[in-house]
Design a protein around this nucleic acid. Structure first.
Lengths: 191, 191
DNA sequence: AGTCGCTTCTTGATAGTGTCAAGATTTGCG
DNA sequence: CGCAAATCTTGACACTATCAAGAAGCGACT
């Protein structure tokens, strides 16, 4: 299964190798050749499946958005609390750092890829699942998204002190409480 | 002045060339050799002043944080409104994109550089200038910073619709209004 | 004046990168 | 069985960062 000429599911294997490599060193120093070697194929094998480096990262980002949407969806359906969706947002960034680092680095991706487009759309929709569609105008959505995304990004870039970094989820709940018209869960029952 | 062996102030010139190059193509595709050629020196000249690529980017990030702190400081002293500091935050990200893109990409920088450290410290302090030191616990600070940083990052990554992207400053003011205990300016006079 | 030391910059080489073209191998289908 | 298409390899090219060694200018001290 491993040393045949045809790999079987090389595409899958390359994506997984890329993800583990990303987890070790980040997207900046990811090398197609290293991913190929890790998978046991020649240096040009990835090009056939993904076209170029951005193509591989696009595939990773697509898979990332799918997992991301799953995680957010799960959080919402399990708790019904919009804040917990935000917590899941940050938890994903921490637990699936390799994916998260790629998903929002658009200069590394093929934005015209239809699969990526679909996946991004879904995770976008899922994020807002808990909000009353008509009532909430744009501002609360933007605020909530910005808040949680900014927190995740700053956290991963090491901008917070140890206390916050030690228990990010608790910190998210605290800062989420700073939003006055918390969208989603029926207003008024909060606090 | 230009074609002497000793350039005069090559360090300055290289930083400026790097900034304009960053503005054209982003930090991922920045090449030391291209910066050198742009400045009219040999391909290895930058190494002498900055050690390596990360050294050059560190210098750019340092200068960026200084300009950043200046901008935030100016906004605070001119308006006395904490929201306007947030607006200045986003405006800086848009107007000085080249700097901003580098400042928070720690994997590209030498975090042990003392100059960078000082500059980061200052822009950090200035950001919180408008907050009552003792009264405000950590949460409002984190919330405000996360909110505005997340907005800036998502904006630059093209995650917002045209309406928001067309007038980001107005959007920042809207989402800032979603924070309930807006820190800084004496409470109560807001709205 | 002269020469020594130091900073500044250049030249050359090395190892690594992404991408492209051409060929080899395997599979599936008629 | 045989052929076409998909899959992967090999080889090459241009480009990159980084390092070592040398050249060029500057300043200071005798």
């Amino acid at each position: 299964m491993t040393d045949r000429y045809h790999h079987g599911d090389l595409r899958r294997a390359l994506i997984e190798a890329a993800v583990t490599a990303l987890g070790e060193s980040g997207p900046g120093s990811l090398s197609l050749r290293a991913v190929a070697k890790r998978t046991g194929v020649s240096h040009a094998a990835p090009a056939h499946h993904f076209g170029d480096k951005a193509g591989l990262l696009t595939a990773v980002a697509t898979e990332g958005h799918e997992r991301f949407a799953d995680a957010l969806e799960r959080a919402w359906s399990e708790t019904g609390d919009f804040v917990e969706v935000g917590v899941a947002y940050v938890r994903f960034a921490v637990d699936y750092r390799a994916y998260f680092e790629v998903m929002f680095r658009i200069e590394l991706l093929h934005l015209d890829d239809p699969d990526l487009d679909r996946a991004r759309d879904r995770s976008n929709r899922v994020l807002y699942a808990g909000m009353d569609e008509e009532a909430a105008e744009a501002a609360p959505r933007l605020a909530a998204w910005s808040l949680v995304h900014g927190f995740a990004v700053l956290l991963m870039a090491g901008n917070f002190d140890e206390e916050v970094a030690a228990d990010p989820e608790a910190a998210v709940r605290e800062i989420a409480a700073q939003l006055n018209d918390l969208p989603g869960a029926d207003r008024g029952d909060r606090r």
